[in-house]
Nucleic acid binder design. Structure first.
Length: 650
DNA sequence: GAGCACTGC
């Protein structure tokens, strides 16, 4: 039997597996391996399996007792990802069932859950548990590793499990607060940066900001001020980093600054946990973060700038003490720090639960409201998700998973609405187009539009534009990309261009990769996003075919495809009002077409959309024009025919 | 004519 160790992120699973394999003197993929989406690096001899928490959830769908594992270790549990929280509840249930099965043959039982365990304890657990675990249905051991200060909550949730404390390795970081609250934190950050630069010993600065726009404007300000520095003062090198930045530019943060130059990194939360930048001695923390918020009543998700939690503030300051002692400047008062929340609200309480509820139903948990969550989402959020799934036909009138629709939907690694769209498209003869659409919808925007080259970027996008809307435009991008990749690779698939296992043709592959990359650059396309979309497309195609369904293209019959979009996304339909604004038909709220849409300024009568983002206004994005009469025709259970057959006045 | 933190299957 194996040991599973989960991580919230893919890179973490790979790097920890690699490190452990190295220390054990084995090759990664043998005794020690990892498993993440699109990449399974394990073998029959694998005993320690590092994986993303989402991957273990997927495995649990196929093997609800996790019978291949004797021990599951949940690492970084304090991050409380949505996957971690669902795993908690599931694993408690699995423990109970396996315990019951094993106590039928054995009488004495040890406590199974432990919080915060050192590696050597872990090894003890492994060795001592070997013999009894050879038996089928033996008890499942569970270790939860968390950097949280409040272990009580974890121990209570895991039935009074014992806590083991491990000293972390970290250099001291001196914390400074402001004496009075700052009226303008950006101005304060600017001043603090130069104060450090002029008064402190060498070492790079990490400044946390809330988003791309803030980073871009701070970059301009810092560069402008730095150009006025006296020539006697060391130079200041400003480097931005955020997730949407193309990877070539992201790499700049890892290059050491030239001698006599101090690097200042302007980062979003990406530098808090996802990546570690060497050379940081100073951290500037304005104490704010842009976080996802969810209003279960309206079902609208939004991004809002909110104060960080104490745990986040500590995580940020820790970034100054990874290689040597450092300093952290918090741009708020100590009193304000004391008033911050202890920890960030778990993700499961801040987002749409449609997917979580669908997965739970697929596990056979019919009473989702009674599920043993460590932090329970609000009742209304769960009920909203149940209604959503019911509208999509995933649930029966009794609230059970419908078959085959619901069971098939749960198998797709997609949002429920996209999963349903795939199923509908197979019946409507345009599954190839829908496959491209859901793949493109599942990744960050592939259009890269830097502010200084906006016009050029828009011109590039015009080459792909469809007058019908964004979905077909995105299909065009994907089609062109795959064509380009095929021409470049002469048979090599677009997705494989980068990662070939054989070395004999690696030069050939390098050439292919280079050509594709320059095509992306020339067309202002984010290569990372598009590569991901191609990977997803391949994976979903496999799932569809695995269900015995066929992928067929409607060719140029985009009318059929748009009808299919209407049939799939009827819950996200909007109609133009007399005053030119739009009304979302399901919620009744007033929305506007986002300026990034190809339909912006086109005034279509009726549209379906995939995303509603709330900023100053509520904007809909990724939109296709449809005929309002299609809605009652294709979704009669949702739209009464008479409600929509009055033409819109224009 | 505006702007989307970060993950994950």
């Amino acid at each position: 039997m194996m040991v599973a160790i989960t991580q919230p992120r893919r890179v973490a699973a790979i790097t920890v597996a690699t490190r452990v394999a190295e220390e054990m003197g084995v090759e990664v993929g043998q005794e020690v391996g990892y498993s993440i989406r699109f990449e399974d690096c394990t073998s029959p001899s694998t005993q320690l399996k590092y994986m993303t928490d989402g991957m273990l959830l997927r495995e649990a769908l196929l093997d609800p007792l996790l019978s291949r594992y004797s021990l599951v270790v949940i690492d970084e549990a304090h991050e409380r990802t949505i996957h971690t929280d669902v795993l908690f509840g599931l694993l408690k249930g699995v423990q109970k069932r396996r315990q019951a099965a094993s106590t039928a043959t054995k009488s004495s039982k040890k406590k199974a859950a432990t919080t915060g365990v050192a590696l050597k304890d872990l090894q003890n657990l492994l060795t001592t548990s070997k013999t009894p675990l050879e038996k089928k249905n033996s008890a499942l051991k569970l270790v939860v590793m968390s950097a949280t200060l409040d272990t009580k909550g974890f121990c209570e949730y895991f039935n009074g499990a014992e806590a083991v404390y491990v000293q972390g390795r970290q250099f001291p970081v001196e914390i400074f607060y402001t004496f009075t609250p700052e009226a303008d934190y950006l101005d304060a950050a600017l001043l603090t940066t130069f104060q450090i630069h002029l008064e402190e010993i060498p070492g790079d600065i990490l400044l946390f900001l809330t988003g791309q726009e803030e980073i871009e404007s701070m970059e301009r300000l810092l560069k402008e001020r730095a150009s006025h520095l006296s020539p006697k003062v060391p130079k200041l090198l400003v480097v931005p980093i955020y997730a949407a930045l193309p990877s070539e530019q992201q790499m700049r943060v890892f290059q050491p600054a030239p001698d006599g130059t101090r690097k200042v990194i302007l980062a979003t939360n990406i530098a808090e946990t996802s990546l570690t930048i060497p050379g940081i001695r100073y951290v500037i923390d304005p104490g704010l973060v842009k976080a996802r918020a969810y209003n279960p009543r309206t079902g609208v998700e939004s991004l809002e700038v909110v104060p960080v939690s104490k745990a986040q503030a500590r995580q940020r300051s820790g970034r100054a003490g990874r290689e040597r002692p450092g300093k952290c400047f918090r741009l708020y008062t100590e009193d304000l720090y004391r008033k911050l929340e202890d920890s960030t609200v778990p993700e499961i309480k801040r987002c749409n639960l449609a997917n979580v509820v669908l997965q739970l139903k697929a596990f056979g948990i019919d009473d989702v409201l009674g599920f043993d969550f460590m932090d329970k989402p609000s009742r209304i959020a769960i009920v909203k998700s149940l209604e959503h799934l019911y509208s999509l036909g995933a649930l029966t009138d009794e609230g059970k998973l419908s078959d085959p629709i619901g069971t098939r939907m749960a198998r797709f690694p997609l949002e429920p609405m996209y999963a349903k769209a795939m199923l509908i498209s197979c019946e409507m003869g345009c599954s190839e187009e829908m496959l491209a659409t859901v793949s493109m919808m599942s990744v960050d925007s592939v259009f890269y539009a830097p502010r200084d080259k906006l016009q050029e970027a828009n011109n590039a996008r015009n080459r792909f534009i469809s007058a019908d809307g964004d979905h077909i435009t995105l299909i065009n991008v994907l089609r062109h990309y795959i064509q380009e990749a095929e021409e470049a690779g002469a048979g090599a698939g677009a997705g494989e261009a980068e990662d070939t296992s054989s070395n004999s043709n690696s030069n050939e592959n390098k050439k292919v990769f280079k050509r594709i990359r320059s095509w992306c650059t020339a067309n202002f396309i984010n290569a990372r996003s598009l590569k991901r979309a191609v990977d997803i497309q391949k994976q979903i195609r496999g799932y569809v075919e695995g269900m015995g369904l066929t992928i067929i293209s409607c060719g140029d019959d985009m009318l059929s495809f748009r009808r299919c979009l209407a049939a799939s996304f009827f819950l996200n339909a909007a109609r133009r009002q007399l005053d030119g604004t739009y009304r979302a038909l399901a919620s009744g709220q007033s929305v506007a077409i986002h300026p990034s849409s190809v339909l912006f300024g086109q005034k279509p009568d009726c549209v379906v959309f995939n995303e509603l983002v709330r900023t100053n206004r509520s904007y809909i994005r990724n939109i296709t024009r449809v005929d309002s009469l299609w809605l009652p025709e294709l979704a009669p259970h949702y739209y009464a025919a008479q409600a929509l057959n009055t033409p819109c006045q224009s």
